[in-house]
Design a protein around this nucleic acid. Structure first.
Length: 261
DNA sequence: ATGGCTAACATGGTTAGA
C-alpha cells in the first residue's frame, strides 16, 4: 500500500462500551485511517475518550442514552463536523459528518423500521427522505463524498441469505430499496459491488438461531462513494474475523481503501 | 414455533435490534 492509500471502515459495534476491546484488537492488525461506528449506545459525557486516544484515534461523536449513537474516528484531524441532519429535528442520534484528508464522510445509522406496518417504518422512510436531501446538498459541496454506515436495507436479493423468507419484510421491502436507489441515483456507488465478491457475502447475522454459523445473514452495512471517489477505490471487503470472537457485535466491519494519488 | 440472542436499564422484565 502506498502512502496515499486511505482506508475507511464502518462498523455497527452494538455498544461501544462492550466492544472497545474488539475495536482495539481489530485495529491492531491493519491500518485504518478513519472508522465510522454505529450503535455506540453512549452519551457523549460517558464516551470512552481515553481508550479511543490510546488507539491513536481522535474524532467526534454524537450519542444518547441507551439507543443509537454514532462516532467518526480518524488518525488525523477531522474538520467541519456536523451532527444530525441539518434542518431535521430528530431526537435520535443517527448521523455525524466530518472531513478528513479531503474526503467528506457521512456516517449514518438508518432506522431499523421494525416491521412494514409500524410507525417506526414510517419514520424510517421519512428519515431516508431527509437523508436524500442532505446527501444531495453534500454532493454539491464535496466531490469526494463517502456515505457509510448501517443502512438497515439489503440492496438486492443478492444481499439476502433467504430472499423468499425475507420477501416484503422490513430491511428488504420495495419502498426501502427504492429510497436506497434514489440515494445512489444522486451519484453514489456501492463500492463493495465494484469488485468480485464471494457469493453470500453478508455484514450482519442474527444472534439467534445460530445465524452466523449458518451464514444466515444480510448485507446492510454499506460504503457509498461519489463517482469521483469511487474511481479511486482499490478494494472493499467485509471483515468477518471479529464476528468469530467472544461476545461479538452482530455486525462485521466493512473496509474500503482508496488510492488518493 | 413470530421463538431463538444480546444489550441497556435495572436488579426482573421490558424495549429494541434486524
Amino acid at each position: 500500500m502506498s502512502e496515499e492509500t486511505f482506508s475507511i471502515a464502518t462498523w455497527n459495534v452494538n455498544s461501544l462500551k462492550v466492544r472497545v476491546s474488539h475495536l482495539e484488537q481489530w485495529l491492531a492488525s491493519r491500518l485504518i485511517h478513519a472508522v465510522a461506528l454505529q450503535e455506540t449506545k453512549t452519551q457523549d459525557e460517558a464516551f470512552p475518550t481515553s481508550d479511543i486516544h490510546r488507539l491513536g484515534l481522535g474524532g467526534d461523536w454524537h450519542g444518547q442514552r441507551t439507543y443509537n449513537g454514532v462516532a467518526l474516528l480518524a488518525r488525523e484531524p477531522l474538520t467541519d463536523v456536523v451532527k444530525g441532519i441539518p434542518g431535521y429535528d430528530d431526537p435520535q442520534a443517527r448521523v455525524i459528518a466530518g472531513t478528513v484528508r479531503g474526503i467528506r464522510i457521512l456516517n449514518v445509522y438508518v432506522p431499523n423500521g421494525q416491521s412494514v406496518d409500524s410507525d417506526k417504518y414510517r419514520y424510517k422512510l421519512e428519515w431516508l427522505a431527509r437523508l436524500q436531501d442532505y446527501v444531495h446538498a453534500e454532493l454539491g459541496r464535496h466531490p469526494r463524498l463517502a456515505v457509510v454506515g448501517d443502512f438497515n436495507i439489503a440492496p438486492t436479493d443478492q444481499d439476502v441469505h433467504d430472499p423468499k423468507a425475507w420477501e416484503g419484510q422490513v430491511l428488504v421491502s420495495g419502498p426501502e430499496r427504492a429510497a436506497l436507489s434514489n440515494l445512489e441515483r444522486l451519484g453514489l456507488v456501492d463500492v463493495f459491488r465494484r469488485f468480485d465478491q464471494a457469493p453470500n457475502s453478508f455484514s450482519w447475522w442474527d444472534y439467534r438461531a445460530a445465524g452466523f454459523r449458518r451464514n444466515a445473514g444480510l448485507r446492510i452495512d454499506l460504503i457509498l462513494a461519489s463517482e469521483t471517489l469511487a474511481k479511486q477505490c482499490i478494494r472493499c471487503e467485509i471483515e468477518k474475523g471479529p464476528r468469530h470472537w467472544e461476545r461479538p457485535s452482530d455486525h462485521a466491519p466493512v473496509v474500503a481503501s482508496f488510492d488518493l494519488t
